[in-house]
Design a protein around this nucleic acid. Structure first.
Lengths: 213, 213
DNA sequence: ATTTTTAATGAACACTGTTTATTATATTTG
DNA sequence: CAAATATAATAAACAGTGTTCATTAAAAAT
């Protein structure tokens, strides 16, 4: 009898309802101000019910973090149409900045907060979402490398260097550390730095593409 | 009569006691697990007393954040003995990584947490500590620039680019995102990437220093 | 129709940051 | 010195947090 299947389906539906409500509140009022009780209220269930579907808040955050990765991957994956590998890489960088700036709370969840990571730790799994998106980067870097860029340097190291820069740039901005300049040229500064970085790593090649200068 | 002076001195002493206790607990058990009540207990006062000396928790965090900057500046300032400007910059980078890895909670407070920044916002002051350390970086970058490095690019942009990379690198590590590789070569990866970045920006010069390759 | 399993909850526990009315102490004034 | 005033410290409360557990209601299996 299909009762177990229906139960399983209902369970998934409930998990979705919880996740959707959590995501909505999260985006509406930020992480800090969203509690289990808020989420429970939004779906018209008692707080204790949430714990029948998610072990704790960390697991809920981890589930949201996974959704955020799906969305980001979908956006970053769109660069495959661009022909020239380095242009594709640059495009990816731009889309990374765009995603981070448009989804600051989600970006935090994905790359800054330690809470969702603890869920992985206690299951001793590896961070698959992170690894998958890092591989996306690595692939494009490898293609650039094959096209003569990056002086045959280790692809993984180059990818980490690029990611580190991108991550640093957006977090400095998102965590309001660019306020220190006391002006309203923050986005301008980000773009200036990004262009500089792109130029810099572009030159890292045995066969410079002079027509790009 | 010196009573007001003594009162002022006692007030400062109390503020110090609170700060010292907060710092100790903070380093012992991390930020998340340190509460106003804990701090009050540590100095054997009631929680409400803390509020006679610090407006709220953000202000307390901001005070700690300032202390952290003093310490970091002292460590980063020690590079002035190095003669060659680019070597000095590299040394600064190494010291930055060292500080971040040895003081992860403090680093978080200084560059990641938004809480202490809100104290600045509501006073509408600018982030002086950040600005000051950014200026330290800018100075060295300017000296490198004067020595022929960085192709006469805008010093402020170059400094931001360098800072962004450094910040990204250490936060990716501190927030456990390098776990994804599932090995124990995390520090190795950091150093590899750092060397790569240093080599990369070193080449950014009209007059390459060939003897360094 | 009765037993068993499952889902949902109310209430509690041990916390959190913060405020306020009250008390104890110290300082100033008459 | 004694009375009035100002200051420092606190207990208690408020409104919130994540989480657990015994109890109840509903569905499924016997």
């Amino acid at each position: 009898m299909g009762v177990t299947q229906r139960k399983e389906r209902e369970r998934e539906e409930m998990r979705r309802r919880i996740l959707d409500a959590a995501l909505r509140l999260f985006l509406e009022q930020g992480f800090e101000k969203t509690s289990i009780r808020n989420i429970a209220e939004a779906i018209e269930y008692s707080p204790a019910t949430i714990y029948l579907y998610y072990k704790d808040k960390n697991e809920l955050l981890f589930a949201l973090h996974q959704e955020a990765f799906l969305k980001m991957m979908a956006e970053l994956g769109q660069v495959s149409t661009v022909e020239e590998p380095f242009e594709r890489l640059t495009e990816m960088g731009q889309k990374y900045i765009k995603y981070a700036l448009e989804n600051p709370e989600m970006y935090d969840l994905m790359f800054v907060m330690t809470a969702p990571m603890e869920t992985l730790d206690c299951r001793d799994e590896v961070w698959e979402d992170g690894l998958k998106s890092f591989c996306l980067l690595k692939t494009v870097v490898a293609q650039c490398s094959a096209a003569g860029y990056f002086n045959n340097q280790d692809v993984e190291t180059t990818s980490l260097t690029i990611w580190a820069y991108m991550h640093g740039l957006v977090t400095i901005y998102l965590k309001n550390r660019l306020n220190m300049f006391g002006d309203d040229r923050q986005l301008e500064r980000i773009n200036q730095s990004f262009r500089q970085f792109v130029d810099m790593i572009q030159k890292e090649t045995e066969h410079p593409i002079w027509e790009h200068r």
